[in-house]
């Protein structure tokens, strides 16, 4: 098991499909127009129901670095935290990624979430470099858990070795 203990809290790496995880909430890397679109977005719509997009349409938008929350339809999770991370090599990738992760964590705390799952934010289509992503995410999440709050466990869901390995290295480095 790849994990880092931070006091009585835990940061853990898993290989699961994020939209099917039994957590209180999971994070979805959304675009500014809050359209679920394809990829995980399509899985959310097909597995969770169309109500999620409806709720997002009412919210209307989400600027980069921010996060909004919806219910999770008939998915196993209760909430989906839609966080708009940096995309396609935009300027200040690192700063924006840190802010996005912080926003997602803050929304989770507001909802009293205990178990939260993140995908590697933007490392696929959105071209965020894996080394930068794993470093920033692991550090930001660890710092947050160290500060206390309702969150007890944060999971990073990385089914492919491509993502799993760099995240594993980051988590173990500071463990």
């Amino acid at each position: 098991m790849v994990e880092r203990k931070i006091g009585d809290k835990n940061l853990r790496l898993v290989r699961e499909d994020i939209t099917e995880m039994e957590v209180d909430a999971f994070v979805f890397d959304i675009t500014e127009d809050v359209k679920l679109g394809s990829g995980f977005g399509a899985a959310i719509q097909q597995r969770g129901g169309i109500v999620i997009q409806k709720e997002l349409d009412e919210i209307g938008g989400c600027p980069t670095g921010e996060a909004v929350v919806t219910e999770a339809g008939i998915l196993k999770a209760d909430w989906i935290i839609h966080a708009n991370g940096p995309k396609f090599r935009e300027e200040d990738e690192e700063g924006k990624l840190r802010k996005t992760v912080q926003s997602a964590l803050a929304r989770a705390e507001e909802k009293g979430v205990k178990r939260l799952a993140f995908p590697p934010m933007g490392t696929g289509l959105y071209q965020v470099p894996l080394d930068l992503c794993s470093r920033v995410m692991v550090k930001t999440i660890s710092d947050h858990l160290a500060e206390g709050g309702t969150l007890e466990e944060v999971l990073i869901a990385a089914p492919d070795n491509r993502e799993f390995d760099p995240f594993k290295a980051q988590i173990q480095e500071g463990a």
Partner: peptide, 18 residues
């Protein structure tokens, strides 16, 4: 840098994530 036809973007995202 994110400049591609919509279909390519949609399909690529599916292949990355699903």
């Amino acid at each position: 840098v994110g400049v591609m036809p919509e279909g390519v973007r949609v399909v690529s995202k599916d292949q990355w994530e699903i």
